[in-house]
Design a binder for these strands. Structure first.
Lengths: 163, 163
DNA sequence: TCGCCGCGTTTGCAATTGCAAGCACCGCGG
DNA sequence: CCGCGGTGCTTGCAATTGCAAACGCGGCGA
């Protein structure tokens, strides 16, 4: 409870790295850190400094904030309704669009919470994303794909299940 | 190259501390770090780690992010949209959920933009790529409804505009 | 005049970061 | 067969963090 997130951050990094399909050395080079150190960080043997964390975030092309939060370094009250506030404040969205977006957001939060509770009960060592409880149907996500592929760097490599 | 910021962060901390009218030792105690170390940090002689920075931020009652930005640990490159920022920063969402939500948001913005252009009879030349032209179809939105309508008649409705 | 307390700072020192070098393993081509 | 390049991991070691102890300075009460 006392924020043993130090290990968590490593797992998170490794997760993101593998999801990006790059090797440990590649990420190390991209982040400007040494390979062995990154290895130790990913396994929770070392607690990377803020600079290193920032470099890694850049190398992973993910938000630095996300990484800091994972590391428990930004855990200051993060209002979940921040997203809702931002959506409501966005004049680039119509009323209906805002409502839909908020609904989706809240739906996602419910799903995530359910997943977390389940994982906390059933400690699954590694097997993930195989058939994880898909609260959103496949067709829903499939329908999203063509629209979703707008702002990807090109490293989409989403597991295209051909089965 | 990354050094000048180190001094900057120290000055910033000292500034904030003096503005809060608390002594170095008080802040050190509140932040849970030693007084001499804080002294060195404020004068740029030491480069505090992320943890210490976070502690100091707490002790100062200021945003951790502001401090990280000052330290050059979070690039100022503010994402194009506050909504996207909020989504990315929300740890209550999985990576995939965040990405999906962002994609939907961007699609909505495209849609809205298209509508706006239509209302304005000013025929400005633009690409006629039909595929990209239609951001989200009506059927897509319809498919969204059942998932989105989780808390439709909740208490989310806000009409209290503060001006 | 003392003594005491607060301020910020300086000084060694244990603990840690982060790295260069090297290890073990594996797939592939000579 | 052995080498070559790829993966991640282990091992010392310099550099750094962060702290406890102590210092100089100034104000205040006895």
């Amino acid at each position: 409870m006392a924020l043993p997130k130090v290990g968590s951050i490593g797992e998170y990094i490794r997760e993101q790295r593998q999801q990006a399909k790059i090797s440990l050395r590649q990420l190390a080079a991209a982040a400007g850190v040494s390979n062995p150190y990154l290895s130790q960080v990913e396994r929770g043997l070392r607690k990377p400094s803020a600079e290193i964390l920032n470099q890694i975030a850049k190398g992973l092309r993910i938000s630095s904030q996300a990484l800091y939060v994972q590391a428990g370094l930004i855990e200051d009250r993060e209002p979940p309704s921040d997203v809702i506030t931002a959506i409501r404040a966005d004049t680039n969205l119509s009323e209906r669009q805002s409502q839909v977006l908020i609904d989706i957001y809240e739906s996602f939060r419910k799903e995530k919470r359910a997943e977390d509770e389940q994982t906390s009960q059933n400690a699954r060592p590694r097997h993930d994303s195989a058939s994880d409880d898909e609260p959103l149907s496949e067709e829903f996500l499939a329908a999203l794909e063509p629209y979703a592929a707008t702002s990807r760097n090109g490293n989409v490599t989403q597991e295209t299940k051909e089965g």
